[in-house]
Structures are given as structure tokens and as C-alpha cells.
């Protein structure tokens, strides 16, 4: 465990807790994209399939449970909670998740030189699910960014949520660089690319977020 990864995990944890707290306290999900939240639930579900089979550490298991629990409860609140669901603006949240999920699944099936199709085993299945969840995580924020562009108003909790989410992945990239030089541990080149794509997707948001913070004005995204 290095400081970049710990900071990344804490930032990630903070982002989901900020969102959950917002929805729970003000009983509103205005400006939040349900599609993005559902995609994140899928990301965690497909990445933590081995939560009961491969035990790493109490920290690892606890964080996995928290991420699974928080992402699914956010989806539950936005879909079924009688008060929260009324504030969900579905005709602003029109991004079709399948146009993100299908390419990620195809990419996950195509790019794993480790396996050929003849060895359809559980580890093949798990590996495909891991890579699928990595790619999906890189693009899962798109529906939310599209919705922010559309609604143009962005309350500061949602802004903080997106900012923390982007910051966590940037910290993870620093973690991969750190591990590459210190532990002779390297992640798959595909992981680098999906992590970079994910961080770059946030780049323009970061720019506007920083501008609004510097000029102390409300965050406005250009149309």
C-alpha cells in the first residue's frame, strides 16, 4: 500500500459518501445521472466477483463491501425511494448505457492475449469481467457529464462528487507509476490506457471546476 493508492481509495470513498449523504439528507437526487450510478454498480459488481474467493486483507474486503453497498443503495434510492425518485430528472438523463457496455465487453473479450477461447474457465471469465469493469469505469461518468452539460446548473455537492471521482483515478495512475518504479509491479498496459482515458474525460470538467473555484463563481459548464 502506498500513499497514492491510499489517497486514491479515500478520495473514491469520499466521493460515494458525499453523494449518498446528499441523497439521504436532502432526499433529492436533482442533477444526478441514474445511468452513471447504475454503471458504477455494474463496475463494482463485475470487479468484485471474487470478493469471497480471494481474500487479500480486511481493508480490501471492507472497502469492496462499502463500494458495493453504497453504489447499489444510491441506485435503490434513485429508483425506488418514494421521495428521492421524484427529483430524478429522467428526460435529462438520456444517455443509453448499452452503447457504453457493449464496446467494453467486446474489448474485454478481444484484448486478453493471455487466453485463447479454448480455455473457457472461471479464471478466463473472471479476467474478462475485470477488464470489462476497468473499461466501463473509464466511461461510466459520461452520462453524468452529458447531464451536467444539459442542465447547466451544477450544485456544489454534485461538482464535488465529480471532482473527487476524477481525482481518485488520477491518484491511482500515480500509484501505478510508483509501483512500477518501486515494486517491479506493473499493471496491464490496457489498465494504463483506460485509467488515462478516464482521467482525461474529467480534464475539461477539472478546468471549469478550478476556474469557478479560483474566481469564486458558481460552476457553469459551457453548452
Amino acid at each position: 500500500m502506498n500513499i497514492f493508492r491510499l489517497a486514491g481509495d479515500m478520495t473514491h470513498l469520499l466521493s460515494v459518501l458525499v453523494l449518498l449523504l446528499k441523497i439521504h439528507t436532502i432526499k433529492s437526487c436533482a442533477g444526478i445521472s441514474l445511468k452513471t450510478q447504475e454503471l458504477y454498480a455494474v463496475v463494482f459488481a463485475t470487479r468484485y466477483l471474487d470478493i469471497f474467493t480471494s481474500y487479500i486483507s480486511p481493508y480490501n474486503t471492507m472497502m469492496k463491501l462499502i463500494f458495493l453497498g453504497s453504489s447499489f443503495s444510491i441506485v435503490w434510492y434513485m429508483r425506488y425511494h418514494k421521495i428521492v425518485r421524484r427529483s430524478y430528472d429522467k428526460d435529462q438523463d438520456t444517455f443509453r448505457p448499452y452503447i457504453l457496455m457493449l464496446p467494453c465487453l467486446i474489448l474485454a473479450l478481444l484484448i486478453n492475449e493471455k487466453f485463447t477461447f479454448k480455455e473457457i474457465s472461471t479464471s478466463f471469465f473472471l479476467f474478462v469481467m475485470w477488464t470489462f469493469s476497468l473499461y466501463l469505469e473509464a466511461v461510466a461518468i459520461l452520462p453524468q457529464l452529458v447531464m451536467l452539460q444539459r442542465t447547466r446548473n451544477i450544485d456544489n455537492l454534485t461538482g464535488q462528487y465529480v471532482f473527487l471521482l476524477g481525482a481518485y483515478r488520477a491518484l491511482y495512475i500515480l500509484n501505478w507509476i510508483y509501483r512500477y518504479f518501486t515494486e517491479e509491479h506493473f499493471v496491464h498496459w490496457i489498465t494504463w490506457i483506460s485509467g488515462l482515458v478516464q482521467t482525461l474525460l474529467y480534464a475539461d470538467f477539472f478546468y471549469y471546476y478550478f476556474q469557478s473555484w479560483k474566481n469564486n463563481v458558481k460552476l457553469q459548464l459551457p453548452a
Partner: peptide
Amino acid sequence: QEQPQGHDEL
């Protein structure tokens, strides 16, 4: 089984 994202990473 090496994971695409470090085996001990979230």
C-alpha cells in the same frame, strides 16, 4: 491469476 489492475487494488 494476474489481474489487469493489481491483485490487491480496488
